[in-house]
Amino acid sequence: MSEPIIPTRTLFIVCGALLLLTALTIGAYFMDLGILHTPVALAIAGAKAVLILLFFMHLRYSSGLTRIVLLAGLLWLGILILGTMDDALTRGWVLGTAP
């Protein structure tokens, strides 16, 4: 309750930025980026997520504890994906049966 109130102007600007980034990611899709398509699209999605987290979910104004909770969640998701991909991507190395 002691959290500061974010002015409506900021909220509108953030929303505008989000819509702009959406247009940008669709625009990038039609450009010739080669293998960079997915990294670029994910980077833009990441930027949008950060905007929502910081302003709409006011992470910018909340305690370090909340941020640690979020980071822990992302770290664990990373562990899950990295550990499994370690197997999925190297399975062909030994067995020669990579699908």
Partner: peptide
């Protein structure tokens, strides 16, 4: 404890690297 789950899968065709 979250980094070791693969040890249950050694014989199930997992990659040697993993």
């Amino acid at each position: 404890g979250f980094l070791v789950w693969g040890h249950h899968m050694f014989v199930s065709g997992m990659s040697l690297h993993a």
